[in-house]
Amino acid sequence: MIHFTAARLRALVLVLSASAALLVSPTAASATAHTPGSSHASHEAHGSHAASAHGHRDDRAFSLLQMNVCSSGYAGCYARTEYPKVLDEVVERVQAHRVDAVTLNEACSADVAEIAARTGYRYRFATVIYRGAPLDCKTPTGRGVFGNAVLTKDAIRAGEDAAYSAFSGVEERRWLCVTTARRVNVCTSHLSTDGEAADSTNSVQCSELSAVLAARGRQTIFAGDVNRHASCAPEGMWTLTDDAATQSPGIQHVYGNLASPEVTVEPATYTDHDAVLVRARLRH
């Protein structure tokens, strides 16, 4: 019978432990590297990080949706709006593109409020005077008064609107501008339809609009139905149009001094103008 002293027993235990580590450790390491649970957990963490990166808002990106929704209830295009489908179309486009701003022409105040409520956007509305008074929208009634609107994803810090010095017929024409929390000026307008002659009312309004936009300074974007093909953009601003539209092409314009502008025209079903989507970059 073999007898071990306490010291020899401790030494033997150490040797056996080291040998076991050499034999078992590679197998254990390999099992850990290929354990499905371990691999899946690593993938989820990476995926979560990527989603966070993609979900983070690009502070310099800016997008805008322009639509003339022809929803007063009086104009000849109204039969195509199939109310409230025209509102649904606006909301669906806003949500699909997640734009930073929306400019609407020929809109109704209560409809704009509903669009804002459904999308979570802020808005300002400019009432257009018709025959000396606000025009109540009809068919159906209860939709507020006729005018133009700007909606923004960001908070609105200031807003201003005013009538042009001249208008033709019985409908006043106005411009509307807001300044957002990102210090971006977003403007819209709907000009008269009497042509582009140098002495026309439309040309007078075009000149005044140019001055309004020039005074806004950096980070300004305008979109609206200007009822003309020649640009009203002041010096230093680019011009994009809906030339590619299938309905009334070339008369919805976008002007701005943001960087890298790109325009896309999308067919609209429930109004007589196609939708205009612009993406650009803010200048910091």
Rank of each mutant, 00 (worst) to 15 (best):
G37S: 09
V24L: 13
D58M: 05
V24M: 08
R57K: 07
P26C: 06
A53Y: 12
F62G: 01
S52Y: 12
G37H: 10
A53D: 10
L64V: 01
L23Y: 01
G37V: 13
H49S: 04
A29K: 08
A50V: 09
A21F: 10
A51H: 12
S25N: 04
D59C: 05
G55M: 00
S52H: 08
S25Y: 12
R57M: 11
L22Q: 01
T35H: 14
A33T: 07
A20N: 07
L23R: 03
S39L: 13
A51F: 12
A21Q: 05
L22W: 01
H54V: 08
G47E: 04
T32I: 14
H49W: 11
S42V: 08
A33N: 10
T35C: 08
S39M: 11
A51V: 06
A53F: 06
A50T: 05
S42Y: 03
P26V: 06
L64C: 01
H49L: 08
A28P: 03
F62V: 02
A41N: 08
A28G: 15
L22T: 02
A33M: 07
T32H: 10
A45P: 00
A33Y: 04
L64S: 00
R60L: 00
R60F: 00
H34P: 00
P26K: 07
T35G: 07
T32E: 11
A31K: 09
H46K: 04
T27S: 12
D58R: 12
D59H: 04
G55E: 03
L64T: 01
A50R: 08
S52F: 14
A51Q: 13
S42W: 02
H40M: 11
S30M: 13
P26L: 03
D59G: 09
A50C: 07
D59W: 05
A20E: 02
S39F: 13
S25I: 09
A41T: 04
A61K: 10
A20G: 04
P36M: 08
R57V: 12
H49T: 04
S19G: 14
H46W: 03
H56Q: 07
S48Q: 13
S25Q: 12
A31H: 09
T27K: 11
P36Q: 15
A20S: 11
F62S: 01
L22K: 01
A51T: 06
A61D: 10
S25A: 12
T35N: 14
H40Q: 12
A53T: 13
D59A: 15
H49F: 13
R60Y: 00
H40W: 06
A28I: 14
E44C: 02
S38N: 12
A61I: 03
D58S: 14
A29V: 14
H56T: 09
A21G: 09
G37Q: 09
S42R: 08
H54F: 10
H46R: 05
F62C: 00
R60V: 02
S52P: 08
A20R: 08
A29W: 04
L64D: 02
L23M: 00
A29H: 05
L64Q: 00
T32P: 01
D59P: 04
